[in-house]
């Protein structure tokens, strides 16, 4: 939890230095490789594989069903 606190504080600090970005200056942010899930099909597959091979899973989504993966 220490790491969590440290990163949250860091985020808040950078939050103070947010610079105004007009919508017409967001061409970099709008690039496909800047998306949160840059390649949807591959991201879906990957999370499925990690879900079935590791103990942890989840994060910012309304989720999917489980599987009987061994």
């Amino acid at each position: 939890m220490k790491i969590l606190t440290a990163i949250l504080c860091g985020l808040m600090l950078t939050g103070c230095t947010v610079s105004k970005v007009e919508p017409w200056d967001r061409q970099y942010l709008a690039r496909p490789e800047m998306a949160w899930d840059a390649d949807a099909a591959s991201a879906a597959y990957q999370s499925h594989v990690y879900f079935s091979k590791e103990a942890s899973n989840g994060g910012a989504s309304a989720g999917a069903g489980g599987c009987g993966c061994n």
Binding site: V18, S19, V21, R26, L29, M34
Partner: peptide, 8 residues
């Protein structure tokens, strides 16, 4: 958050 024109 959009931090600047290149960072989110």
């Amino acid at each position: 958050f959009i931090l600047n024109a290149r960072t989110a």
